[in-house]
Design a protein around this nucleic acid. Structure first.
Length: 592
RNA sequence: GGGGUCGUAGCUCAGCCUGGUUAGAGCGCCAGUCUGUCACACUGGAGGUCGCGAGUUCAAGUCCCGUCGGCCCCGCCA
């Protein structure tokens, strides 16, 4: 089908262009046929331009226009005219193009939903027709931001002497950490590649090779359950530096984030960012990714309640737990039902119950008041800095659980009381540092690496590895923006012996370590420089910059929460022949 | 692995608790009218596997069970 090729886009004509002859190509956004006057809005990625036909002058065009429907792809030639009734809401609203000739390039079926910004279509339908959904300007905006981010990344890190190197997508399966996606192959039967959860080991090897500063915008894969901010394949800005310490990496990243915010949002942000240890983040905000845009900090009150008459509290303290609280300002009016709702919410995080104290009309209203002395009660109220009208929520459990529960409640109260709405266009940037190196995993009855097994312990703590491994802090750091973990990094182990020690702490025998990571241990013996780095979640950064709370809206072709692609129907069953070639037998053959 | 919630016209939803006439509304769509619209307006019309399956019942969109799918959360995500 022939068409006249455009010489201008739909977003750029202005009043200065009056009188020009132009050719436009695009999609019919809408048509308004007034009988004696026909309007079309023509859309492309750059914007909208109004086309007009005067039937009294051009009956032939009016006739042709009768068959034009929304989302048809057309070309139109005409003269740029000043509008009789301009539309101040459109960038091109002062002009219109009076058509002298046009043609249909391609017809379109009626789309299942309209190509508009404020539609409320089920996401299921949107994902099935993703190619139409992606026409919506609101969605396209996210990909324009995303593209700008690629450019800032490449420019900033190139200016800082980083070089981009591609690492394998088919790699060795690593048993530590998230579940791998496995890839069989015809040539090597019974063996499997894995898709990378991260190029971690490769980038460390690149440091051994002397590349000094590496970066890559890279896809990573994890076969774990999905969430509104988690997809099985996602993009990281991955980087690694040699002869660098934590401060080098942190200040480099602060420079990057500054530039990103300036470039994309034209906002100047202050650096250095706040710093907080893991311990502080947990005890003040109940999270290792604290949202610092508002207060409502957690207060620990264990000290005053050691011997209190409320067994839930004293018992928790006795078994090395804590009693802590948050003050839900102005929430004393919460009904029994609302508080029950909060209790249910807390239970999702492992709470057995939730104690509360209301301060109403100068009186204390609380089911636990009768178990506490006046001094104990007052010490709680004082710690909470509570005044009349406040609701104090108290949690007592193990250390981790107490703070995690209160951290979740803090966010929930902020949502319920409108604090979240107030702060939604604010930004807070911080580093959480000094994570524990290890955490004990009840299920496998061993220590597992909190960050990853290549993380360097803090120098002062290395000697603790022998006898008190749970006390060892890692030289690791997370970049947290608005309560989201946007990046995580660490100084890596470059010493073969420490790395072996680490593997053995994780319960790996020498043979096992050799089998799984022998190539790394080997490389560390051939002149490994001290090095460290970080990986940024690019999708999450785009989400924050575009103010979107759903990762699917910043990924062109995302999966649903059950890992399906509704548009192309993957994952799909495969032919028996294909399986035979790979020597794969299915344990349970699906019907059909 | 677990919990919550949703699935009815092309789209968004009401109806379901308390089973009973021909399953409704708005938007969109189709036809007609209309010379300044831009959410065009007005008149008329078409449009349904109530996700799927099985059950209870004289009777199921509605009740029970199963199943598929969307979303959110816990676990999980080094």
């Amino acid at each position: 089908m022939s068409f006249e090729k455009r010489n201008i886009t739909c977003g750029e004509l202005r009043i200065e262009d009056e009188g020009k002859e132009v050719i436009l190509n695009g999609w019919i956004d809408s048509r308004r046929d007034l009988g004696g006057l026909i309007f079309f809005d023509l859309r492309d990625r750059y914007g909208l331009t109004q086309l007009v036909i005067h039937p009294e002058k051009r009956a032939d065009l009016a006739d042709k226009a009768k068959d034009i429907r929304q989302e048809f792809v057309i070309w139109a030639k005409g003269i740029v005219m000043k509008r009789e009734s301009p539309n101040p809401n459109m960038p091109t609203g002062l002009i219109e193009v009076e058509i002298s000739d046009f043609g249909v390039i391609n017809k379109a079926k009626l789309p299942p939903f309209e190509v508009e910004d404020d539609i409320e279509t089920n996401e299921e339908t949107r994902l099935k027709y993703r190619f139409i959904d992606l026409r919506r300007p609101v969605i396209q905006k996210n990909f324009i931001i995303r593209n700008k981010m690629y450019q800032v990344v490449h420019r900033y890190f190139a200016e800082n002497n980083f070089i981009e190197i591609e690492t394998p997508v088919l790699m060795k399966s690593t048993p530590e950490g998230a579940r791998d996606f496995l890839v069989p192959s015809r040539i090597n039967k019974n063996r499997f590649y894995a898709l990378p959860q991260s190029p971690q080991v490769y980038k460390q090897l690149l440091m051994v090779s002397g590349f000094d500063r590496y970066m890559q915008i890279v896809k990573c894969f994890r076969d774990e359950d999905l969430r509104s901010d988690r997809q099985p394949e996602f993009t990281q800005v991955d980087l690694e530096m040699s002869f660098a310490d934590r401060e080098d990496i942190i200040s480099l990243l602060e420079g990057f984030i500054k530039e990103l915010w300036k470039e994309i949002l034209d906002i100047d942000i202050d650096a250095p960012f706040k710093r907080m240890t893991y311990n502080e983040a947990m005890t003040r905000f109940g999270s290792d990714k604290p949202d610092l845009r508002f207060g409502m900090e957690i207060k620990t009150v264990s000290e005053n309640l050691k011997s209190c008459g409320f067994k839930v509290f004293s018992g928790a303290i006795e078994s090395n737990g804590e009693v802590a609280l948050i003050n839900a300002k102005g929430c004393a009016g919460y009904s029994r039902k609302q508080i029950d709702g909060l209790t249910e919410f807390a239970k999702k995080y492992g709470a057995k119950g939730l104690a509360w104290i209301k301060l109403v009309d100068g009186k204390v209203n609380s089911p636990i008041a009768k178990f506490l002395s006046d001094d104990e009660l007052n010490s709680i109220i004082t710690a909470a800095e509570a005044v009349d009208g406040d609701l104090i929520l108290i949690s007592s459990d193990s250390w981790t659980r107490t703070y995690t529960i209160l951290g979740a409640l803090r966010l929930e109260i902020a949502r319920q009381t409108g604090i979240m709405d107030k702060i939604k266009s604010d930004f807070s940037f911080s580093w959480v540092v000094d994570f524990p190196l290890l955490e004990y995993d009840e299920e496998s009855e061993r220590y597992i690496a909190m960050h990853h097994p290549f993380t360097m312990p803090k120098t002062d703590d290395i000697e603790l590895m022998e006898n008190e491994p749970e006390k060892v802090r890692a030289n690791a750091y997370d970049l947290v923006i608005n309560g989201a973990e946007v990046g995580g990094g660490s100084i890596r182990i470059h010493d073969n012996e420490i790395q072996e020690k680490m593997f053995s702490l994780l319960g790996m025998s020498k043979e096992e370590a050799e089998d799984k990571f022998g190539f790394l241990l080997n490389a560390l013996q051939y002149g490994a420089p001290p090095h460290g780095g970080l990986a940024l979640g690019l999708d999450r950064l785009v989400m924050i910059l575009s103010g979107i709370d759903n990762i699917r809206d910043v990924i062109a072709f995302p999966k649903t929460t059950s890992g399906l692609s509704l548009m192309d129907g993957c994952p799909s069953y495969v032919d028996t022949k294909q399986l035979e070639e790979l020597s794969i037998a299915l344990i349970k053959k699906e019907e059909e």
